[in-house]
Design a protein around this nucleic acid. Structure first.
Lengths: 207, 207
DNA sequence: ATAAATTATACGTTATTTGTTTTATATTAC
DNA sequence: GTAATATAAAACAAATAACGTATAATTTAT
């Protein structure tokens, strides 16, 4: 039995539906369309997923988990100085790894009868909590100012990530990478510990 | 009776449906959705358009006409030297004024029963012919090399316009504007009359 | 105040989507 | 090779959604 998450058809369905959901949201995409695009029969689809909603939940969960994972990797690396951490996090956002498509979320929220809005809220809260924990952890090691509220930090990351994809700003800096670096510098020196190390300096000597 | 094209509701329906069609294509967008988004009742919709297909045709026609109009403006302006003409045409494309969304066209072509593919072909041919006429007109005035085939010219414009939106090229030049200017320079000096004027020089002294 | 235009609602009719089932066709393990 | 398993393809009933029309209520313009 190849019910496993490694089954190529299972993965194909996930990849295809993610692509379609991301572009058109939930309601505009049909199961048959997913099957057709994924090159998989309907039987196979219903072997893996009871219906479209559950598939969407799986897609969403995977995406959130991957985001948290990436965030954690960045946060917990002792050898990365604060400035680079900021840069990496913004790159993460701008690359869309952590971005849940608006179209997708809209359908999650605007169909109360599916009971998805509550489900999403719960998932988001969990992810939020995990990331706050990671940040506090980094704080306790002195990598960030101790009196900075974790919630405020995450909010700022989110806002600045939005700025990074702003076309006007982009035009100012030429490439997204440059804009990200500039913003990261700006942001980092407002959040580093008072005794803060300089950009580029390694911080492994804290212990 | 306000059946006229200037009726604000009529215009609202067109604007809304264009936005939705551009993003999701024809089949994924419903009449009720358009009405809802446009803030217009279904009755009003059906007063102006017999059905979604006819609406789509109208949207498409308006878009093509606007493209031709812009093209003509650029082409026929005596005070614009060839180099600037090229730049303006590429900006026109890159701004999307003339770009018909891929999603939209897909649905036009992939539903033979609607009889839209033939209709689109016809419209495109007409637009193509008009633009060729405009180009020949400009040729006869000596603004472009006389032995350049108009069809080839339009093809080149299209191809180069695609290049202008290529991310890799963009990264090379920073801003789309810069890339456009560079490509325009490159392209123009290959198409100007043998006795060609220099870039920036006005060409009104031909007659 | 009146007429015209528009919305809101309900409705029957199609068309589409869903999820199941059946049959045929590959794949895989032995 | 054969049996067991997995998948595809197609047909299907049931549910859902979209279409287009009709009517009454409401708004807007004059």
């Amino acid at each position: 039995m190849s019910e496993g998450k490694t089954n190529p058809r299972y993965r194909q369905i996930l990849a295809t539906s993610r692509r379609l959901f991301w572009k058109h949201g939930l309601r505009r995409v049909t199961v048959e369309e997913i099957c057709r695009e994924a090159g998989v029969s309907k039987m196979t689809f219903y072997k893996f997923f009871p219906n479209k909603i559950e598939l969407a939940k799986t897609v969403y969960t995977i995406e959130v988990d991957r985001g948290i994972e990436k965030f954690r990797e960045i946060m917990s690396n002792n050898d990365t100085p604060a400035l680079e951490k900021m840069e990496q996090m913004m790159l993460l956002k701008s690359e869309g790894t952590m971005n849940i498509s608006r179209e997708f979320l809209n359908d999650f929220y605007s169909n109360p009868e599916l009971g998805l809005s509550g489900w999403v809220e719960k998932k988001s809260r969990q992810a939020w909590q995990e990331m706050i924990g990671d940040f506090q952890n980094a704080q306790s090691k002195g990598w960030f100012r101790a009196d900075f509220k974790p919630e405020g930090f995450l909010y700022m990351v989110k806002k600045i990530s939005e700025m990074v994809t702003d076309e006007n700003l982009l035009r100012l800096y030429g490439t997204p990478q440059e804009a990200i670096m500039e913003l990261s510098r700006f942001f980092t020196f407002g959040i580093m510990p008072r005794s803060g190390k300089l950009a580029g300096e390694k911080s492994r000597d804290i212990t």
